[in-house]
Design a protein around this nucleic acid. Structure first.
Lengths: 246, 246
DNA sequence: ACCCCGACTGAACACGTGTTTAGTCTGTTG
DNA sequence: CAACAGACTAAACACGTGTTCAGTCGGGGT
């Protein structure tokens, strides 16, 4: 749509529509280097450092991409495509909705994960698109889980899914931001460690809740009359009731 | 134009020895301007812009603080002191542990909140200190709530509190990062909107949980033998059980 | 009166940035 | 072969940055 010349000589034309650019061409090498640098040090990384990583001059980067901004746009597109590809070929497994965990544990996805985190951190397009993806996927999967009786229904499924995604993603982002992987660039290790530490309380909260009494929720439901727009109303037979002591 | 003197054009002299530097002196004006700029545009804000806001020259900023880095350190200290002050005088209310909400709704705390968010975003000292504060406070308050029978006990209170703080703070940070208050600098409004939207799912999760079955939790507890260090074990008599079908 | 000291400034410096320019090299095409 | 096109580069440009320099101003102490 905006990228100047999309495929003057097909950068990734050979054989597999694989993960990285993975082409001997300089343009592809620059793109990979840029994604890596951006993932490692954020989008403040200099064009010259990227060029050095790719083994070319800074001028060539501009020659191929027009400007640093357009280079970043190209990176966004590239990473986005990479994500959907990774999703397509990894989501067939039982890992429903846990895209980030899967990516974080798989080898070779480290730059991707790092880039997404940076984009999340700076409010970039990739970050936004990523949470949208996660929300959509999570909505599907929780709907299935609710149908299977594994998960409680909610008064506003969309809002719950949004809350869940924002919470988990935000917690992870905050964690890696607050104490970044100081020695190496092993973001994935930090993420795994974070999950190991916080898996119990999450599970606990998800199965046992936090409050012992329903009062706060009931008060809120009384106080706020409208079930948010687009929510599937329970209509009749209340689809769930735990009937603790009131 | 900026003649030193006692109070030739003191902006807010009346009453409070309170929150901001609030001193006619140029140094204090620079500090306030710096906090504001940093809160608004992040720590990449230029010394010259800060100086302009304070109505002084860029050289004076350096003259007073030595370097931009030390100016930021001074801002960190200042904001930190500001926070503990705000906490001391606002925490007497019933708002237990909800420091951020209180600050976000109170007038005049906008720069503070913005600064904290930026520090969180960039992994600064203030951000780290802030989550530590929140974790410590939350631990106290949840302990009380557990003692009062309002909140379920946890197998690892510290971990739960950490999870809760990271989740809520991270979600909020992610939200304001992903769609920032585009027109004004009203971070607090964005935060309030965010909370309004996500309060129901949060409450729902906290009182009703997410999963219908205990199996995942029990499996995890079986698989992981050690109750984390310092955790008070639930002994036996399960403090609550939903007892759906296993 | 003097002098000195600190607040304070405009101009410059040193540097890193993204980008442009002019040019070289190489392969392809007439 | 000659000519062109495009990948590619070294050098320079324009600019914004943090910081330094050489001062000026003004009030207080001796």
């Amino acid at each position: 749509m905006h990228s100047v010349d999309v495929a003057p000589e097909g950068p990734d034309q050979a054989g597999g529509p694989l993960v990285p650019a993975s082409d001997g061409g300089a343009r592809a090498r620059i793109l990979d280097a840029a994604v890596l640098r951006f993932a490692r040090e954020g989008f403040g990384a200099s064009v010259r450092s990227i060029a050095a990583d790719a083994g070319v001059s800074a001028a060539l980067v501009i020659h191929h991409f027009g400007s640093k901004g357009r280079l970043r746009e190209a990176c966004d597109e590239h990473v986005l495509a990479w994500i959907v590809e990774a999703k397509r070929q990894n989501m067939t497994k039982a890992a429903s909705g846990r895209l980030f965990e899967v990516l974080a544990q798989a080898e070779g996805f480290a730059p991707l994960v790092g880039y997404v985190l940076r984009s999340l951190q700076s409010g970039g397009v990739v970050g936004r698109a990523f949470v949208e993806h996660m929300i959509d996927d999570a909505e599907t999967y929780t709907a299935e889980a609710v149908a299977d009786g594994i998960v409680n229904p909610s008064r506003d499924e969309r809002a719950r899914v949004r809350y869940l995604v924002y919470s988990s993603l935000g917690a992870m982002l905050l964690s890696v931001t607050l104490d970044p992987p100081h020695d190496a660039e092993d973001v994935t290790a930090a993420m795994r460690r974070f999950m190991d530490e916080l898996y119990l309380p999450m599970l606990e909260l998800f199965t046992e809740g936090f409050l012992t009494t329903r009062r706060m929720l009931d008060d809120y439901l009384l106080y706020v009359p409208d079930p948010p727009p687009g929510a599937q109303v329970p209509a009749d037979g209340t689809p769930h009731d735990h009937e603790e002591e009131p």
